[in-house]
Amino acid sequence: MVARIIVPAELKRDTPFEVRILIQHPMETGFRLDMMGTLIPKNVIHKLTVTFNSDTVFQASLGTGISANPSLQFWMKLSQPGLLKLFWEDDLGVIGEAVKSLEIKGPQN
């Protein structure tokens, strides 16, 4: 399972920017049948957290209405460089994570 965190190439201090998250996940609804007619068990990412330097900046609880390979986006701004970490957990107990190091370009205050 691959997860991507996408941020603009250049980040400026105290200027809002958009963070995009793309996760490779089937997001099984639990309503679909397989080729043999048996129910495919529900398997969705139920918990998703993004932290920046151990502070939670974004949290989401997804359900069956979210498509496969979910794409999420939110805005944040930085006052210092640091690590953006993404954690998610699905119904099968699989835990995924991705890390992105954010650096600030521009004058130091």
Partner: peptide, 12 residues
């Protein structure tokens, strides 16, 4: 390329 979901497979 940042949004294209197929790039999840390309990275893999």
């Amino acid at each position: 390329d940042d949004l294209n979901p197929a790039f999840l497979w390309v990275i893999q």
